[in-house]
Write a protein that binds this DNA or RNA. Sequence first.
DNA 1: AATGAATGAGGCTTCATTCAT
DNA 2: GATGAATGAAGCCTCATTCAT
Lengths: 173, 173, 173, 173
Amino acid sequence: MTEKKERILHSALRLFATQGFAATATSKVAKEAGVSEGLIFRHFVNKEGLLTAVMEQCSEELRSVLAEVMLTEDPTEVIRKLLELPFSISRSQYEMWRLSYALKWQANRYDQSSQEALKEVLIGAFSKLGYDYPEAETELILMYLDGAATSLLLHEPDGKPEILNVVKRKYGL
Amino acid sequence: MTEKKERILHSALRLFATQGFAATATSKVAKEAGVSEGLIFRHFVNKEGLLTAVMEQCSEELRSVLAEVMLTEDPTEVIRKLLELPFSISRSQYEMWRLSYALKWQANRYDQSSQEALKEVLIGAFSKLGYDYPEAETELILMYLDGAATSLLLHEPDGKPEILNVVKRKYGL
Amino acid sequence: MTEKKERILHSALRLFATQGFAATATSKVAKEAGVSEGLIFRHFVNKEGLLTAVMEQCSEELRSVLAEVMLTEDPTEVIRKLLELPFSISRSQYEMWRLSYALKWQANRYDQSSQEALKEVLIGAFSKLGYDYPEAETELILMYLDGAATSLLLHEPDGKPEILNVVKRKYGL
Amino acid sequence: MTEKKERILHSALRLFATQGFAATATSKVAKEAGVSEGLIFRHFVNKEGLLTAVMEQCSEELRSVLAEVMLTEDPTEVIRKLLELPFSISRSQYEMWRLSYALKWQANRYDQSSQEALKEVLIGAFSKLGYDYPEAETELILMYLDGAATSLLLHEPDGKPEILNVVKRKYGL
DNA sequence: AATGAATGAGGCTTCATTCAT
DNA sequence: GATGAATGAAGCCTCATTCAT
């Protein structure tokens, strides 16, 4: 991957995440990347192809973030790490999270693939911990994850740590 | 409000909610509403004005939905009604909810006004119920609300009722 | 059909006929027609649609020209009129003939539909006149037609009348 | 001439002949020839230069084909060979004929040079054979040539041999 | 109020051409 | 000689908006 190709990818991620895909002109991506507009199409075929490439990068990063949670043995730790996840989004990860969530709301771009594996792990964890409805608990904690991410990504990137304590206590942590 | 103006508003809501604002051409709105392209501009000045009108309608509807929660006396009931809220989104409300959430992710269109009043009520409710951190509990339940809405609006409009039971139990309901 | 639509059609015919379809920019058509470029697409969907519309006009005009020949009773007259046809292309018909021929040479745009009916008539005429191979004679005279059109359209729009006499004599006219 | 240069020339001939000059991208030529995009410009300066080189090749081949006719002593044989010419276009010559004819219809690319010499020969032949209007007969037979080429190149590469017999008889062959 | 033809700016994309390697 | 990344002008097309009717 050439340096310019990476610059395009990076600018596209930033702009798609903040302005939205449809509202971002390819000329803006090119300008921000310091590159000719034509180069985008040589590397990514079309605007859709650029989005796909950006999404693949996001998915990969997301997978690696979730892997950390999923490879944890102790079920209590799994829950704890997941609850903390949205509060520990780093500056460098901010845009990929934001794009991932923003795209869910754009016409038919919901990508659930990365969640499926996580679900299995969570159901296992809740089962081991003796919860009565492991599936429902899993769905609920994933909802919390979506809500926390939404809230933190949209207003206070620094988060309010007391919330984390409150939710942890609901899981006996 | 003439009938055609209302048809425009209705089509715009539907299309903006499902395709996104930027990705929806005004000509599509006109076609779906069965009116001429020019009429949109006579009634709403420009596309942005149409969006504003649609959002106002949404806000009003949202306010009336939240009012039902906020006017409840019993603090336990307030919590319960709020938890149930995302699970009781009716077909006719679906699009207004979806648009409201989709727009949050679009550049600078977040409208917090309706949440502020709700926050006050929730802090009051958690206080009365003797919770240790009413503010943090309020933030948390609002996160849950965002997460549940996200999840329910994006994939299972019918929801999974067991989740509701599980979360209710966390609040002793 | 509005006046501007007709102006577009007319300019497109002229430019496609002289510069070629692929080599003619839609902006050039618009400029020559004294019209905004966008109007082309409102009326004809895309550049291909514009070509189709132009071709349909040509086909119609061509059909009416050939009809004159085909409705002739006397077989000798049929032959004579056909032989004279390319020598009597008027200034106003020039572009439609030129486009019709030019397009034959462009990727897969040969339209034989108008020739089929003519073939039938010619085979009938040569048969009545007692020619030994009416089909082959028909093919030959159509070849002559293509050749004469090619020659006259490409260099001397005024033609050389002696050629006509020479060919007529080969058919005993 | 290097092998790659020849491959470019060959691909260009094929694509220009079938798709048209304006409609053929240099990148397509490079791809079909299996060379890099830049190489075309090293060898031929620009796209126009590539066309010129292709046309020169065509002209040379055409000249050698016509030379065979023109070097014939017997005037009857000259006529016969010319009449047979379009019916004897070989598969390997097909593209050069097609390009030559297609280009006639493109703005200002008609190359008459090779016809001039042929005209002289034909006038001579018709004169020797005692025809009344050798010049007009020459123009006519050249028209036939254009028509036959048009017809044979555009639809039936195998031709219909009876046509040849019919036309030969018109010249007493 | 309502239509729909018309505009023009700007969007996505292609493509001839250049240039560092 | 050869490559292929890169450019930028131009091409096709879309779309918000205007305006005569």
